[in-house]
Amino acid sequence: MRSSEVTPRSLYIRRRDFLKLGAGSALAFSLPAFARAKVEHGPKLAGVTANPSYALPEEKKNAFEEITTYNNFYELGTDKSDPSDNAGKLQTRPWTVSVEGEVGKPRKWDIEEILKSFPIEERVYRLRCVEAWSMVIPWDGFPLADFLKKHDPTSRAKYVAFESVVQPQMPGVRGYAGIPFPYLEGLRIDEAMHPLTLLAVGLYGEALPNQDGAPIRLIVPWKYGFKSAKSIVRIKLVETQPPTTWNQYGGGVEYGFYANVNPEVDHPRWSQARERRIGELLRRKTLLFNGYSEVAPLYAGMDLRKFY
């Protein structure tokens, strides 16, 4: 698709505002008239191959509309619909990702270089939000391990810290979102190197929509969704456990550093035993490690109630 064929973002947003304005008055005449605004699709990614080991054929994938209109991305607003409504407030070009800390070869990448340097594969993963809802999403990306190995991590690299973008025009950054920015996340090095851990650059074969963490984000499918930091600008390998946003919040009232999906360990305010798969009415049982039992050896001998 040529760039001239894409509706300019400003025009598209104005059209949406117009639709919203019209919704109220249209209601008086005919109810079905207030249709939902369509979500913009990103450009198609070239050379994506589906990885058959992660096809998840037994699961029904969530629709593009569902994955792109129901998001947690506090920099773009705290309501579930805010990130898609404010998607235009995130600028994804130019974009650099800096890799630093305990590495032999630190590097500042341009996003275009990253896209060219790593073969992109499609993997269908379950995503379990800490808020007890879940989705099944076909991500496009490459293993974080492949990316990290390019930088020769030193023996002192015990943890990986991720930092998300902060741009002054983002509404959550300008206003009050209740958490400090930049958003920080972290993994133990063995978690980061696990073959399941992905750096995603797209979904459904298209460049990541902004509300889903464009242009590059982390995916750790056995942990609650908030561990999978969006719109990453810095990856730092460090020797000690790095501070993470929700672990620090309110003196640790929200979640621990690990945040592995675990039906046995409640959130302070709700149970994690069951979840609502988006698109289904009744809840289903939540699985330990979100069903990715192959990660269990990472936590052998650890008390998962203590390290939650």
Binding site: L31, Y70, K80, R276, I278
Partner: peptide
């Protein structure tokens, strides 16, 4: 009735 309750209608 117009299926405008969004992605998570129960919530």
């Amino acid at each position: 009735l117009t299926s405008n309750l969004g992605v998570n209608p129960v919530e």
